[in-house]
Every structure is written in structure tokens, then in C-alpha cells.
Amino acid sequence: MTGSSTHGIKTVLHPVTDLAKAKPVYAALLGIEPQYDDESYVGFEVEGQHIGLVPGGTNQGMTSPVAYWHVPDIEAKLAELTAAGATVNEPARQVGWGRVVATVTDPDGNVLGLLQDR
């Protein structure tokens, strides 16, 4: 099977109910303070990965952490995945910092995140 490649999993977003309580736990786990820190999102950059805390993520349909595969062309990858049997869960949308994200669900219900930096 051929298609566009990915740059690997570089982003994992965790839904949290209480950002103030979650932030010190992740800071302790990662051994660093967050680089992005406001009431709508907290993000840590560590060893080439981005770990994000999404307050109210469960209200956005996040039931567990979501790993985001970085791709060069999100629309092309969405087309490839749906042709292969995935279902679009969240279509491509801008989220800031020049990033576009989308999610799909595989045939077993696992959520796969896609992320394109523009």
C-alpha cells in the first residue's frame, strides 16, 4: 500500500477536568514547567514531543488521551484513511499556532489524531 507518509506521533493531548490540579502532576512527570500555559490549554515540549492538557476535553468528546500523527498534508491523509475504512470523527480545523487537526476512528473505535503544521 502506498500513500503519504507521516512524521510520527509527536503530540499527545490529555483531557482534564481540573487544569490547576493536573498541571503540577504533568510538570512532575515530565520534569519541566509548561511552555504554553493559559486557562484554555497547557502544553509541554519535551524530547521532541508535545504533551497537551485540554480542560473540558471530555465535553469535546475526548474520552482518553489522543495521540496525534504529524502529517505533511492532512486532507490527503484523511482521504487515504477513509478510503481504507476509517471514519472521520472530527474534520480538519485550525486550532492556532498554524496548526490544523482532525481525528478519525478506526474500525475498532480507536481515535487517531492527525496534525499538520502550516
Rank of each mutant, 00 (worst) to 15 (best):
G43Y: 09
F44Y: 15
E45R: 13
V46K: 15
E47F: 14
G48M: 11
G48T: 13
G48Y: 10
G48W: 11
Q49G: 07
H50M: 09
H50E: 07
I51S: 04
I51F: 14
I51E: 06
L53W: 07
L53D: 07
V54F: 12
P55A: 11
P55L: 09
G56F: 02
G56I: 05
G56P: 04
G56W: 03
G57N: 11
G57D: 06
G57L: 11
T58M: 12
T58E: 14
N59S: 13
N59M: 12
N59Q: 14
N59Y: 06
Q60K: 14
Q60F: 14
Q60L: 15
G61A: 07
M62L: 13
M62G: 08
T63G: 02
T63A: 08
S64F: 09
P65H: 13
V66I: 15
W69D: 09
W69S: 13
H70M: 13
H70S: 13
V71A: 12
V71D: 08
P72R: 04
D73W: 01
D73K: 00
I74H: 00
I74T: 01
E75M: 03
E75C: 01
A76W: 00
A76L: 11
A76C: 07
K77T: 15
L78E: 01
A79I: 00
A79S: 12
E80D: 11
L81C: 02
T82V: 14
T82C: 06
A83T: 11
A83Q: 12
A83Y: 00
A83I: 00
G85E: 10
A86I: 02
A86C: 15
V88M: 04
V88D: 03
N89K: 12
E90W: 07
P91D: 03
Q94D: 15
V95H: 10
V95K: 09
V95M: 06
G96R: 14
G96L: 14
W97T: 02
G98H: 05
G98F: 08
R99P: 01
R99F: 04
R99C: 07
R99H: 12
V101S: 01
V101C: 01
T103F: 06
V104N: 06
V104S: 08
V104G: 09
D106Q: 00
P107D: 09
D108Q: 13
D108I: 08
G109H: 04
G109K: 02
G109D: 04
G109I: 04
G109V: 05
V111G: 06
V111T: 15
V111M: 11
V111C: 05
L112V: 15
L112Y: 03
